[in-house]
């Protein structure tokens, strides 16, 4: 029973990682860049939701919606202002710029909202479901459900809509996509919008589960989710989902059965071992250079 309850909380944590990892992986797939600021978009989303609910007493749904809208716009603005001019630049330059954006968001948040921790309100109360000896909180359940919904929605979106197909085409071959009349810049912008919108949802879920909100809230989950995306094979949507869930479960089990303090070491060691066996992640494909 203990095992089962750990598994469920692991899946819940993993769901949050998976949602964040989806944002990383989509952006990587299409723009071939690591958007280090992604974790901080999560934090911005959480703050927006927090203020909407606590200061303006808006209902949670409105708060979440507002967070999604703000983050979507923020993601597009970041892409337009900081990344688009660097489309032809070496990837390291883009990486450093992304780090700059990350610092910027963290410090701007600190100035606007101070670094004193905010206690995030519960968005759906503290209810629990009792299944025999097993107790599952509503938040846990909600997190897993939301993650599944997002996963299916994204799969449907990329498989069945014109925009989704354009995104797949761009991530495979930008030149050919352009020849088909696809606006590559617009598609990249759209990808950032979707990824950032998801980040807002992840932020709200994260803060519902771990209710302390500070300007650096997004950093560590961001790094972990990025790891999860690589774990699953970066660029692959099912990979991000799988990687996120596995990472969450491994982390929770490591905390439960090995040591709370060393859980990060365990998680990252597993990552290194997996990459040794599968150098492109669980679902990634190894691409060889053409000679």
């Amino acid at each position: 029973m203990r095992f089962l309850s750990f598994l469920i909380s692991g899946l819940s944590l993993g769901s949050i990682y998976a949602i964040i990892a989806l944002g990383y992986t989509m952006v990587y797939g299409i723009a071939k860049m690591l958007n280090f600021a992604h974790g901080d978009v999560i934090m911005v989303g959480s703050y927006i939701c927090f203020f909407a609910m606590m200061r303006y007493n808006l209902p949670p749904v409105v708060g979440v919606l507002l967070a999604v809208i703000v983050c979507t716009v923020l993601g597009m603005v970041i892409e337009r202002a900081a990344y688009k001019p660097l489309r032809q630049a070496p990837s390291l330059a883009v990486l450093i710029t992304a780090i700059g954006v990350s610092y910027f968001l963290q410090n701007a948040a600190q100035l606007l909202w101070t670094s004193s921790p905010k206690v995030f309100p519960s968005i759906i109360g503290n209810g629990k479901i009792q299944l025999g000896e097993l107790t599952i909180s509503h938040v846990t359940l909600l997190t897993v459900v939301v993650c599944l919904v997002i996963m299916f929605a994204l799969t449907w979106f990329t498989g069945n809509t014109k925009m989704g197909k354009a995104m797949r085409a761009c991530s495979e071959d930008k030149g050919a996509a352009q020849l088909m009349g696809i606006d590559v810049n617009g598609t990249i912008s759209m990808t950032f919008a979707i990824g950032s919108g998801l980040a807002a949802i992840a932020g709200v879920l994260l803060c519902s589960a771990y209710p302390t909100l500070v300007p650096t809230t997004g950093s560590m989950p961001g790094i972990k989710a990025f790891t999860a995306a690589v774990f699953g094979g970066i660029g692959s949507i099912p990979g991000a989902f799988l990687g996120g869930l596995l990472l969450g479960v491994i982390e929770t089990f490591a905390k439960a059965y090995i040591s709370t303090q060393l859980s990060d070491a365990v998680v990252f060691s597993v990552l290194i071992i997996v990459l040794l066996v599968r150098p492109a992640g669980l679902l990634g494909k190894v691409i060889n250079e053409k000679v």
């Binding site: 450093i96 710029t97 700059g100 954006v101 910027f104 600190q110 100035l111």
Partner: peptide
């Protein structure tokens, strides 16, 4: 730190 971040972005751009 905000200025630091901006300097970083502007230099890279």
């Amino acid at each position: 730190m905000l200025v630091y971040a901006i300097v970083l972005i502007v230099v890279m751009l």
